[in-house]
Computed example of a mutant assay.
Amino acid sequence: MTTNSPVVDRPRPQAKPLLSHQAGRVELITIRAFLIIPFLALVAVVPAAWGWGIGWAEIGVGAAFYVVSGLGVTIGYHRYFTHGAFKANRALRIALAVAGGLAAQGSVITWVADHRRHHAFSDREGDPHSPWLFGTSAAALAKGFWHAHMGWLFGSDRTNVARFAPDLADDPDIRAVDRMFPLLVTLSVGLPAVLVGLITWSWWGLLTGFLWSGLARVAFLHHVTWSVNSVCHMVGDRPFTSRDRSANFWPLAILSFGESWHNLHHADPTSARHGVKRGQIDISARVIWAFEKLGWARDARWSSPERLERLAAKA
C-alpha cells in the first residue's frame, strides 16, 4: 500500500539582484579621471599635431598598443570571456585578460558582468547602456546617445558579479589579472612613452609617446568601443532578427576589429564571427581562426549557413 505525501509548496529561490553596491566617492573619482584625462589629452594633442609632436615612432608604437589592447577587448573580454565563442588554453586565456586590461576600459570581471547584463536586458529596463531608455523624442535620443556612449560610466551603480560573472570570480587566474587592472592601465600609458623615448633617444620623445601613443590612443579606443554601445544601437542596417535595436555600422568595422557588425552578434551572441556576409571584414574572427590553427584555441562557434538563414530578418 502506498501513501501520498503532502505536497509542500516550497518558495522558489529568488534571483540574485542586478546590482551589488553603489560605488564610493574615491572609486568614482578614479573612474572619472580614467575617462576624462585621456580624452583631454586627445583634444589637446590633435591641434598640436599640425606643427609638431607626432612622428613615425609615436604612430608605430601607438598602433601596436591599439591593436593589442583592442583585440584584448574584442576577442578576450567580449567574444571569449563574455560569450564563450571559443575555448582557449590557459596561456592564451591569461594573455587575453591582460591584453584587455591594457585598453583601460575596466577590469575583466567587471567588464564581463556589465556586458552580460547588457545582453540579458538589451534595450530594455536593466540594460546598463541602452540609448532607448528615455524615449524617442529628439531630446530623449540625445540624452540616450550620451548615456549609451559614456554617460553610464559616470554612474555609481555596480553590476552584481555573483549573478552575471560567477565563473570568472571563481577562477584564480582571472581574479589575479582582475586585481592587476590599475597596474595594467599604468603600463598601457607608461610603456609607450618609454619605448618612444628610447626610439628617439630623447626626453621629448618620452613626452610625445606618453601623450600620443599612451593617452590619446587610449581615448581613441575608448570612443570606438563606446560607439558600438551607442551608434550601433541607433543607426545602421539590420539583416538579422534580434530582440533589440542592434545594427551594423560599416564605417567602424576596421577600427573596432569587426565589433560594429553588431546586428548578427545580438542575433547569435556566441558566434565567433560577427561579420558573416560577403565584404564584412572581421579582424577579430580571423585572429580567432589563427589561434585555432596554432593550437591555442579550439571549438570556435562559427555560424553555419543554415543558422544564418534561420536568423535572417523577414522582409
Rank of each mutant, 00 (worst) to 15 (best):
L255C: 03
R286F: 10
A99P: 00
F81Q: 08
L255D: 04
N89I: 10
F34A: 09
A91D: 12
G51T: 09
A48M: 11
E125N: 08
T241V: 00
L187V: 04
A120Q: 11
H115M: 00
A169H: 04
A95Y: 11
S271R: 04
V73E: 11
W250E: 09
W52T: 08
G144L: 13
A138C: 09
E125L: 09
A91F: 14
V26N: 06
S242F: 01
I37H: 08
G295K: 14
R273K: 11
S20M: 01
W296A: 15
A193M: 00
Y80P: 08
E125A: 11
D167L: 12
G144K: 05
V235T: 05
A169K: 10
L96Y: 12
S5D: 11
N248L: 00
W132F: 12
A176I: 02
A41K: 08
G214D: 06
H129G: 05
K314C: 02
A97Y: 09
V177R: 01
M1T: 11
G126N: 01
I37S: 10
W203Y: 13
V235C: 00
G190W: 05
V7N: 12
E292F: 01
L102Q: 10
V235A: 14
L102K: 04
A88S: 15
H115P: 02
P128R: 13
G214L: 10
A120K: 10
D123M: 03
I36P: 12
E125M: 06
R243C: 02
I254Y: 03
V185A: 09
G70D: 03
H233L: 05
H147D: 03
V61I: 15
R273P: 00
L255G: 02
S260A: 14
H118P: 05
L28G: 07
A64H: 00
L19A: 10
K277E: 15
L18E: 15
W261F: 09
S260W: 01
V45H: 03
G101W: 09
F134Q: 13
G197W: 08
W52L: 03
A169I: 05
Q14T: 12
H266C: 12
T110S: 11
V161S: 11
E58R: 13
D299R: 14
G144D: 12
T30S: 12
S230E: 06
W152Y: 13
W212G: 07
W302C: 09
R117M: 15
D170L: 11
L221C: 03
L92S: 12
A219D: 04
L221R: 01
V7I: 15
N4D: 09
F39E: 06
E27Q: 13
M1R: 13
G70K: 01
A139K: 15
H147G: 06
R93C: 10
H83L: 06
E259T: 04
V68G: 01
V276K: 07
R245L: 11
D127M: 00
R310T: 14
S202Q: 13
F86C: 03
A193G: 06
T225M: 11
A285Q: 07
R93Y: 10
V7A: 14
V108Q: 03
W261H: 10
V218M: 09
A140Y: 04
G155P: 02
E125D: 08
G101E: 07
F257M: 10
T82F: 04
G106F: 08
